[in-house]
């Protein structure tokens, strides 16, 4: 897309926005348009030159900054933004798919209303483009209530099955949901453990949104767990056959050390033996733990257990 196109889209939104929010601060307007303050001031300059023939003084858009606030006195009929284009509606609908099926009926009805406000001649094109992005992840059911709990700032309770143990009850302040490599996690403060914790949504059962309110901390961002990420604590050496090597190289990049036989070797963190064992097993014999011996033994035991030994 050309810059002219982007700029026009922005400007056709800017004038109505100021018209609807007279006195909006320069900063807030720049944020709403996702541009810098300098770029915004430049756009406002351009807009003062826009008008319609015969270009009498009253024919120009009258938009100005006063005391760091923006006002429009003459919007030249730009009082509402244009309708959504087929591409805009399609991108929005496709992104909404990310939360399906968790979002339930709200998504379905939102998309219907959205389609309804498209110009008739655009609808068909929208449907065609919508079919071109398929972003339906396997969003678990728990995503719906958890999204609501985060939004309404209410504590949740659920049973959580830690690996190898039966589910035990937890009471949690939900802060943030995140999806990493197709896996969904809830980050929050666990009352049961009195600590910040990350929970996998697929290990929760009997999720309930309680009436107990809480105040979230200003910035509760969790690091996505990625034990495979090379770090200074990387202590387990894993070797891959030439068959698996290209896939491992793809994920580890320069950190995958090439071997003479065409295979590769990587170092990964060893703080979760369970994760490491699962990961090595998921290569179905194309991966081998070299050291430490304790990690080798864990893999051997798990593989033997799988065939009933």
């Amino acid at each position: 897309m050309s810059n002219v196109h982007e700029r026009l889209r922005r400007l056709l939104f800017l004038v109505p926005y100021v018209s609807k929010h007279p006195g909006v601060t320069v900063e807030a307007l720049a944020r709403a348009l996702n541009i810098s303050r300098e770029d915004l001031l430049e756009e406002l300059d351009l807009l003062t030159c826009v008008g319609r023939p015969p270009f009498n003084p009253d024919d120009y858009i009258d938009i100005y900054v006063d005391n760091d606030r923006v006002y429009v006195d003459l919007d030249q009929r730009l009082f509402a933004p244009p309708r959504l284009t087929a591409g805009e509606a399609a991108a929005l609908a496709a992104s909404a798919e990310l939360l399906r099926p968790a979002s339930g009926d709200a998504l379905q009805s939102a998309l219907q209303k959205l389609e309804h406000v498209l110009p008739p001649q655009v609808r068909e094109r929208y449907r065609e483009m919508y079919r071109k992005i398929d972003a339906s992840t396997e969003a678990p059911e728990a995503l719906g209530p958890l999204t609501r709990a985060i939004l309404e700032r209410r504590e949740v309770t659920f049973g959580y099955a830690s690996p190898g143990r039966a589910a035990e009850p937890r009471r949690v302040r939900p802060y943030e949901l995140l999806s990493h490599r197709g896996q969904w996690y809830l980050q929050g403060f666990c009352h049961t453990r009195q600590d910040a914790r990350l929970f996998r949504l697929d290990r929760m059962e009997d999720l309930t949104v309680t009436e107990t309110p809480f105040l979230p901390p200003p910035d509760a961002r969790a690091d996505v767990p990625n034990p495979a990420r090379s770090s200074s604590e990387a202590s387990v050496r894993v070797r891959f056959s030439p068959v698996a090597a290209p896939y491992v190289k793809e994920r580890f990049g320069q950190d995958a050390r090439p071997l003479a036989d065409g295979g590769v070797e990587v170092l990964v963190a060893g703080d979760s033996e369970r994760w490491l064992t699962q990961w090595v097993l998921s290569f179905g014999g194309e991966a081998e733990v070299m050291e430490p011996v304790s990690a080798r033994a864990a893999v051997a035991r798990a593989a033997r257990a799988s065939i009933g030994l």
Binding site: F79, A80, P81, P82, R83, L84, L92, S95, A96, E97, L98, L99, S103, A106, L107, S109, A110, K113, L114, H116, V117, P119, P120, Q121, T147, L151
Partner: peptide, 21 residues
């Protein structure tokens, strides 16, 4: 056909579209 009309999205519908988008 030019001006965007109000889509009358409910709070919940808007939240879904916004969260995902």
């Amino acid at each position: 056909a030019y001006y965007l009309p109000e889509a009358d999205l409910s709070k919940e519908e808007l939240a879904v579209l916004y969260a995902a988008g």
